[in-house]
Simulated assay, not measured.
Amino acid sequence: MKQAVLSFLRGGGSALPGYRLALGVTLLWTGVFIVLPLCALIIRPWQDGVGAMVAATHDTRMFAALWTSFSSAFLAALLNVPLGLLLAGALVRGDLPGRKIADALIDLPLALPTAVSGITLATLYGPQGWLGAPLAKLGLVLAYSRTGIVLALMFVGLPFVVRTVEPVLKNLPRDMEEAAVLLGARPWQVVTRVVIAPLLPALVTGFGLAFARGVGEYGSVIFIAGNQPFKSEIAPLLIVVRLQEFDYAGATAIALILLLTSLLALVLVSLVRRRLSVWGEQR
């Protein structure tokens, strides 16, 4: 028995020493910190019975908050795709001064605490902000509206698109572009068929990651959203409101919907990415 345990810990016939031990620790860590909380979130809404779950989902305020979160996250991720592509192209192909500083600033939204990002955006785009005040004179109100939510989600989700596209663009051979030009391709044909076409799987992946992050974003949004029910209230904020009201069934029901939506988005993105990869290979 002792020899069997030692053989398992050492990896048995594996070429890597300690492979099974490392595998066991990894599976244990994944189960305790990822799988177990997700299972608890899936099971918890049904503990009070199906009736309580159904009653919790019959809430017009909840549907309004979910629609605000989903639509804002989708629009922000969609706008981040061309912006992230341009930034990735500038970082990879451009030779601009301060490129390394700009490269480091791309990851700043991921490093900053979300509350700091939210306060900064609210201060910048608020009615008295550096950008909010002149825009308000033009009739453009960005803060405390859905537009402010989209801006905050674009700020948070942009690094996902840039960092997903950047390595693919860096490994894209420029010989293909030169060959296309020599064969008589126009500039827009070179961009769309030679450059963007191989980047489609990466763009779809970046879009999916930005959308999934935006659906559950809280700290960077609440300071600029206005948080008006049925207008600019996001679903994560409504979860906090339901917890403060001791409505645990309602809070977990919203959380479950957000979880399933994010998982579904990632699964669809994976399927689309595979199809685009196969299509690219066939071309």
Rank of each mutant, 00 (worst) to 15 (best):
T252G: 11
F207M: 12
L209I: 10
V215E: 02
V267Q: 15
I222G: 01
G206K: 04
R273Q: 14
V269E: 00
F223C: 02
F223K: 00
L258N: 09
E217A: 10
Q244A: 11
P236K: 00
S270G: 12
F211C: 01
L256G: 03
L276E: 01
L258K: 06
G226K: 08
T261E: 01
F230K: 10
F230I: 08
T261K: 09
L268R: 10
L209K: 05
V240Y: 13
R242Q: 09
R273M: 06
L209A: 01
G216N: 02
L256K: 11
Y248C: 05
V240E: 10
V215W: 03
W279R: 15
G280V: 09
A212S: 12
G214Y: 02
R273H: 06
S220D: 08
S270M: 08
L238A: 01
A235Y: 01
V241A: 11
R274D: 11
L260P: 08
G214P: 06
E281W: 13
P229N: 07
I224W: 01
V221F: 10
R275W: 14
E217F: 04
S220E: 03
V221C: 03
G250N: 07
N227F: 09
F211H: 06
S232N: 07
A235V: 03
Y248W: 14
D247P: 03
A251E: 04
G216T: 02
L264E: 07
A210M: 05
Y248M: 14
A225Q: 01
L256Y: 06
S220C: 08
E245H: 11
T205S: 13
T252I: 10
I222M: 08
L260E: 05
T252R: 14
F223H: 06
V267L: 15
G216Y: 00
E233I: 07
V278P: 05
V215G: 05
L258V: 04
S262E: 04
V240P: 04
S220T: 06
R273A: 10
A255K: 08
F207E: 05
R242H: 07
V241S: 11
S232H: 04
L260R: 13
G208W: 05
I254K: 03
F211V: 01
V278R: 15
L268D: 07
K231R: 14
V267P: 09
S262H: 11
V278Y: 14
Q244D: 15
I239N: 06
A265Y: 05
F246I: 15
I222K: 02
Q282Y: 13
L263H: 09
F223Y: 13
G250F: 02
V204N: 00
V269S: 07
N227R: 12
G280P: 04
V240C: 02
N227Q: 12
N227G: 04
I239K: 05
A249F: 10
L209Q: 07
L238G: 01
V278C: 08
V272M: 13
A225M: 01
L263V: 14
V278N: 12
R213W: 07
A251S: 10
L256N: 10
G216S: 07
G250L: 00
P229V: 00
E233L: 15
S277W: 14
F207C: 11
I239D: 02
A265K: 04
T261H: 09
I257P: 08
D247L: 05
L243S: 03
E217L: 06
T261S: 15
R273P: 07
A210Y: 04
G250P: 05
A249M: 08
R275H: 14
G280A: 13
A255P: 05
I224E: 02
L259R: 08
G226T: 05
